[in-house]
């Protein structure tokens, strides 16, 4: 059996597994047609299409996209606020216009990257939750998972900093390292809480105000 044929069969199995129970008849219909298609690129394309169709039945991608966008915007407000207050504090300096121009350039770049990072993390997290954790009204635990997904960004940065520090040849490293790890943990915990609280408020608002136009049974 060729690799493509094997992959096509795996994809078809996956499509049938993803389909919600009340739509299993349609998954069987897709599989029956799949069995009739001769081996080749067409069979593989059919299987890919079936996966997409079953995902559409399982989740609403546009709904996931829009909700992730709102959540990312909420989380993004926090660093944006911090940078804005920094920019305002610099505005009193006589050379403010030079600093502020440079600062805004850096801030806009960094924030855009951060926003994209938050959005991508949340979007992937949403898709996984829609696939594996479809139970509605689990706002608290789901918010915890979302906050953890976004928290991985500063956590990764913290880990890189700590590991760079640990590989230093300075003889006072062990003493510094303990203090440093403590500070990283403390800062990250504050960051985590700062993500969690706005997200929780956002979740409660989404749960009360957001009515999906074409929600399909999961």
């Amino acid at each position: 059996m060729s690799l493509r044929r094997r992959l096509a069969h795996r994809l078809m199995d996956h499509a049938c597994a993803v389909m919600p129970p009340n739509r299993r008849e349609w998954a069987a219909a897709m599989r029956a047609e799949f069995a009739m298609i001769p081996d080749g690129p067409e069979k593989f394309a059919w299987a890919c299409g079936c996966v997409w169709a079953c995902y559409q039945e399982r989740i609403n991608p546009m709904d996931v996209f829009l909700k992730s966008l709102v959540r990312a915007a909420v989380v993004w407000l926090w660093p944006f606020g911090a940078d804005l207050s920094h920019a305002l504090s610099m505005a009193t300096d006589p050379r403010a216009h030079v600093y502020v121009t440079k600062f805004l350039w850096y801030v806009s770049g960094d924030l855009s990257v951060m926003y994209a990072g938050i959005f991508v993390s949340l979007f992937v997290c949403e898709l996984l939750m829609a696939r594996f954790w479809a139970s509605p009204k689990r706002i608290g635990p789901k918010t915890l998972v979302r906050a953890a997904a976004v928290w991985l960004w500063p956590l990764g940065k913290g880990v890189i900093l700590v590991s760079n520090f640990a590989t230093s040849t300075d003889p006072r490293v062990p003493a510094y390292l303990a203090t440093f790890v403590w500070h990283v943990c403390r800062d990250l915990s504050i960051f985590y809480a700062a993500i969690f609280i706005p997200l929780l408020i956002c979740e409660l608002l989404i749960a009360h105000l957001w009515h999906s136009r074409s929600a399909l049974p999961a």
């Binding site: 897709m30 047609e33 059919w46 079936c50 169709a53």
Partner: peptide, 22 residues
């Protein structure tokens, strides 16, 4: 008509065809 035949007739891929049929 079955799904594969409809896919051929309409030039729609299975990922578009089946959500419409459903």
């Amino acid at each position: 008509r079955h799904g594969y035949e409809l896919s051929k007739a309409t030039k729609l891929q299975s990922g578009t065809l089946y959500p419409l049929l459903i």
